[in-house]
């Protein structure tokens, strides 16, 4: 009845698609628009771009990537990273994005959520929550790609964000991100069970069963997927003559420290969901 969305997440630095572990140690994988196009053709339900360095000097290349993608892919595109003001939101939407994701700006000035959801519609405003588990078991929200501590407890933050008018939440476990050890079920469940807006789980999937677990036990509404898809696409294109990607993919061949990530395509993820009685567009 409710269709689970599979949302490829593409972290961008300048003109490149990058991927790290724990949101750090970024490696260049290739051109984001090529990956986005491929995921679209494979049945991605939405796309998400995140400008991970969010340097204002690099904005032109981000807008260029958004605009190219929006002209070729007719599914919702969310853009995040470095969006601080209503004007920033407007310019990203004008470049062709459908939604924006806010983190740092929302933490520093929560009223931007209300203002933006009023002006652009709640459904346009996604709030990103990046959480790190503390020694006492609490989850606290971080900003600037998990680098800066805010001292805010994630559940109260999630509820406040919902009240301010956010349309969706993307919840990242910084601890699990890029590791392939699975989504953080405890964190996802904590938030998904206590808000009425959709929760997109992010960070950690390495194998197919991780998707089932975060839906069943974590109560997620949608799946953000990065490494497993990117590595799958790279594996497929490295054999072709038209491999234009100039990324640093040597690390994938060396097969070190990535044993936990099984490259998997969108079609396989959806087949897995369907065979486990989850509905999805197929």
């Amino acid at each position: 009845m409710v269709n689970i969305r599979v949302i490829p997440r593409l972290d961008i630095k300048g003109p490149n698609l990058v991927k790290g572990i724990h949101l750090e140690g970024l490696r260049v994988l290739g051109r984001p628009e090529d990956f986005a196009q491929y995921y679209y053709e494979q049945g991605a339900d939405e796309l998400m771009y995140v400008d991970v360095v969010a340097s204002l000097y690099e904005r032109n290349s981000l807008h260029d990537i958004i605009s190219k993608t929006a002209r070729r892919t007719f599914i919702p595109l969310t853009v995040g990273g470095g969006i601080r003001t209503i004007d920033d939101i407007k310019s990203v939407l004008r470049a062709g994005a459908d939604k924006v994701s806010l983190n740092t700006a929302a933490v520093r000035n929560p009223t931007i959520i209300r203002e933006a959801s009023r002006k652009f519609g709640s459904s346009t405003i996604v709030v990103a929550i990046e959480a790190i588990k503390q020694p006492d078991g609490k989850y606290l929200a971080y900003v600037d790609n998990g680098r800066e501590h805010t001292g805010i407890e994630v559940l109260s933050w999630a509820k406040k964000v919902e009240e301010l008018g956010a349309g969706e939440l993307i919840v990242t476990s910084v601890d699990n991100e890029g590791t392939g050890t699975g989504y953080n079920i405890e964190l996802t469940k904590l938030i998904a069970e206590n808000v009425s807006i959709p929760v997109i789980a992010h960070g950690g999937p390495g194998t197919l069963k991780d998707f089932g677990t975060v839906l069943k036990d974590g109560k997620a509404d949608a799946l953000s997927v990065a490494s497993v898809l990117h590595y799958d696409y790279i594996k497929k294109i490295e054999h072709t003559m038209h491999h234009r990607t100039e990324g640093n993919i040597e690390f994938l061949k060396s097969n070190r420290s990535f044993q936990k990530i099984n490259p998997t395509g969108i079609t396989e993820i959806k087949q897995y969901l369907l065979s486990n009685f989850y509905e999805c567009r197929h």
């Binding site: 409710v2 269709n3 969305r5 339900d45 459904s123 349309g167 969706e168 009425s196 959709p198 509404d221």
Partner: peptide
Amino acid sequence: VKVPQIGWN
């Protein structure tokens, strides 16, 4: 169900 409905149907 979650309201708003966001996604495919």
